[in-house]
């Protein structure tokens, strides 16, 4: 188990020192939130209606922005090769990298996003639900991001392909995330089921994404 945590700890320390993680993603997040009213207009009522969906889409894009650096540095300096030679199965390596990405990027964004919703006049009633849904959903986002990063590591134009591969897979998280968020002001009975499905998606990703990611890394090493 200490092997698992050592990798998570190292990745988080690296994101903190190199400043490529939550800080950069947060900067991107805020920039998009400023651009939205500039493009759509400052009508507060309209923005309020738009806010939950806009926050979710911005979250997806911000997480996506940081994905191509999940495996690339380790691939470039030879660390990834050594990781395949360790006593820990590659599936757990992929899981540790995903968890580190979540703790370093996804989770901080999920926690800060509702607060930034103020910029879009987010209904105060929605703060709690959106926070809960984003914390849960961002886990799936990080796991899928890690899978995309594993598939495209070392490729030319890897960043472009990652978007094409991963964004379609983000569709369910987006739909149930927004549905859980909007439930409070819309149909309250939908909150429970939406959160349950969101949990199911995160749990399924927790099991399946690292397996697929490990297979992809093996294919790259071959």
């Amino acid at each position: 188990m200490s092997m698992f945590w050592s990798l998570i700890r190292r990745d988080i320390v690296l994101t903190l020192r190199q400043g490529g993680g939550a800080g950069m993603a947060l900067g991107f997040f805020i920039t998009v939130l400023v651009l939205l009213p500039l493009g759509i207009g400052p009508d507060l009522k309209f923005l309020q209606r738009l806010a939950p969906g806009a926050l979710w889409i911005t979250l997806l894009l911000s997480v996506l922005l940081s994905t191509d650096r999940i495996f690339a540095p380790d691939y470039e300096d030879g660390s990834l090769e050594l990781m395949t030679m360790g006593p820990m199965p590659l599936e757990l390596v992929a899981l540790a990298k995903s968890v580190a990405h979540w703790l370093g990027t996804g989770l901080p964004l999920a926690i800060l996003a509702p607060g930034l919703g103020v910029l879009l006049n987010l209904d105060a009633l929605l703060f709690g639900p959106i926070l809960l849904a984003m914390v849960l959903g961002s886990l799936a986002l990080s796991l899928l991001a890690c899978l995309g990063a594993a598939i495209t590591v070392g490729l030319r134009r890897g960043g472009m392909i990652i978007s094409l591969l991963i964004l379609p897979l983000y569709v369910p998280v987006l739909i149930f995330g927004v549905s859980a968020t909007n439930a409070i002001t819309g149909v309250p009975e939908l909150f429970g089921p939406s959160m349950l499905i969101l949990t199911a998606i995160s749990l399924a990703s927790l099991v399946l994404a690292p397996i697929a990611a490990a297979a992809a890394i093996r294919a790259h090493m071959a």
């Binding site: 598939i151 379609p168 897979l169 569709v171 739909i175 399946l208 697929a212 992809a216 294919a219």
Partner: peptide
């Protein structure tokens, strides 16, 4: 190998995406 992984990941996701779009 990598394309095969992509195809299979997509295949697992198709029903989930379909279901979520119907819900939406």
């Amino acid at each position: 190998r990598l394309a095969a992984i992509v195809a299979l990941v997509g295949f697992v996701n198709i029903p989930i995406i379909k279901y979520s779009v119907d819900w939406w």
